[in-house]
Design a protein around this nucleic acid. Structure first.
Length: 262
DNA sequence: AATATGCTCAACCGCAGGATT
DNA sequence: GAATCCTGCGGTTGAGCATAT
């Protein structure tokens, strides 16, 4: 047996709401609330509308705390960050934005942010990263995640007066971005990159997916250097596995980082 | 000025799942 | 336990507006 429709569609009004209807709904809800039942609300309020339509109109437009107007850059960043972590869970994303509804966020994503997001991903993923480190130099190194979910690494060459780039003699420090194949595969702060005296390392103390691992090893020419218990994360009840990957090629590091310069 | 195309966003739809009968 | 009700959610649609040709 099929599900009964929530209302008789031949007897309710559809389409855009008039100012009068808005007033009736707003006044009724401010006085009475929903009383826990949207389906019976339109009849009580004197509206020829489906209960679902009333609910949507209230939640997405009439509620007093709704913020109308364009999204700020900060809001964009929050949406992009959360989308990279949880996907299209619009209601959860909207819950992190004061005064925004899931419908607003979804529309904004579909019309503006999706293109921005995909363009950024394609741009990073099309760059092949050859991870070459000149081990004769000392680097300060730092990794953060930007709001596209891309891991950004910044290398500063500490002993810059001894460093000579083949591509650019003036290059003493730079930053590059390390594309992630999938935004959901590594949790924030799981990857700790480091430049050590014998090469470029990425350590994963918890949760590296097999596809990301394969990507590092095959596409980016990393090799497995160490796999075992991580002393920094072990406790009496559990141990974490440490996977350490080392870059194979050392030769053209300055060329690589120049290619990923901001 | 007229028409085509693209964009925005309010509204609708169907489904999932929890609550109630 | 099954049937039904209701809410909330994400995907989609289409009217209206803006811009390009």
């Amino acid at each position: 047996m099929g599900r009964a429709p929530c209302c008789d569609k031949t007897k309710v009004k559809r389409g855009p709401w008039s100012p009068d209807e808005d007033n009736i709904l707003k006044n009724y809800l401010e006085k009475n609330g929903t009383a826990g039942n949207w389906i019976s609300l339109p009849q009580k309020a004197g509206l020829r509308r489906c209960g679902k339509s009333c609910r949507l109109r209230w939640l997405n437009y009439l509620r007093p705390d709704i913020k109308h107007g364009g999204f700020t850059e900060e809001e964009d960043n929050i949406i992009l960050t959360l989308y990279s972590q949880i996907g299209s869970r619009w209601s959860l994303i909207a819950a992190n934005l004061q005064g925004r509804t899931d419908n607003d966020v979804k529309n904004h994503w579909n019309t503006k942010l999706k293109k921005k997001f995909l363009a950024a991903q394609n741009s990073y993923n099309n760059n092949s990263f050859t991870n070459n480190i000149d081990s004769s130099h000392d680097f300060n190194h730092n990794c953060t995640r930007n709001y596209y979910g891309i891991l950004e690494a910044t290398c500063s060459i500490v002993d810059s007066n001894t460093f000579t780039s083949h591509m650019d003699p003036n290059l003493t420090n730079s930053s590059f971005q390390f594309p992630l194949p999938s935004l959901m595969e590594i949790q924030e702060n799981d990857a700790i990159s480091s430049v050590q005296e014998d090469g470029y390392f990425m350590d994963f103390s918890s949760g590296i997916s097999s596809s990301y691992y394969d990507n590092l090893v095959n596409d980016f020419d990393f090799q497995e250097k160490f796999i075992g218990s991580d002393p920094n994360y072990s406790s009496s009840s559990s141990n974490s596995t440490l996977i350490q990957l080392q870059a194979n090629n050392i030769a053209d590091f300055d060329q690589s980082i120049k290619g990923f310069e901001n």
